[in-house]
């Protein structure tokens, strides 16, 4: 369990590097959330308690790269984790399209919540990178889900 969790945290660290250094280097306002895919992945491949531990640890790790109020980022990922865990009894999470749509929807929810909560008046040109970011978050999520599955299988073997 410890090995799996530490490997996943290592991947989260790498994801933070991609999210904060590589992607903004290509297009400054672009943000792609790779952790959302991993959250879906841990629900599919790991147990609830292990998944919850990972979500708390990884979101705290991501908090180091944000100016958001401490606790806000763990709150969002905790909400996502619990919601997706409830949804897994209703929808087939293993389906790639489901993963894409779920991640994109949660990315949009996060952006909308922040915009409303912080009372930010976005201009149309500022909405475009947010929309592109949400679409790319959705597209990246099956890859992250597969990565979690691979880590799990590697340690099981």
């Amino acid at each position: 369990m410890l090995k799996t969790l530490s490997s996943l945290l290592g991947i989260t660290f790498l994801a933070a590097f991609i999210e904060t250094v590589l992607l903004p280097g290509l297009w400054s306002p672009l943000r792609v959330d790779l952790l959302l895919g991993m959250v879906i992945g841990v629900i599919i491949h790991l147990g609830f308690s292990q998944g919850l531990l990972f979500v708390l640890a990884s979101s705290l790790l991501l908090q180091a790269f944000s100016g958001a109020r401490p606790g806000l980022i763990p709150l969002f990922y905790l909400f996502t984790f619990v919601t997706v865990d409830i949804l897994k009894d209703v929808i087939y999470l293993e389906n790639i399209m489901t993963q894409v749509i779920l991640a994109a929807v949660f990315s949009v929810i996060a952006a909308c919540a922040l915009v409303l909560f912080m009372d930010i008046g976005l201009k149309p040109e500022e909405v475009i990178p947010l929309a592109v970011g949400s679409v790319l978050t959705g597209c990246a999520s099956p890859v992250m889900v597969a990565l979690v599955g691979r880590v799990k299988r590697a340690y099981e073997a």
Partner: peptide, 9 residues
Amino acid sequence: LAQDISVIF
């Protein structure tokens, strides 16, 4: 070195 993970903050 790095930018914020959220575009809002």
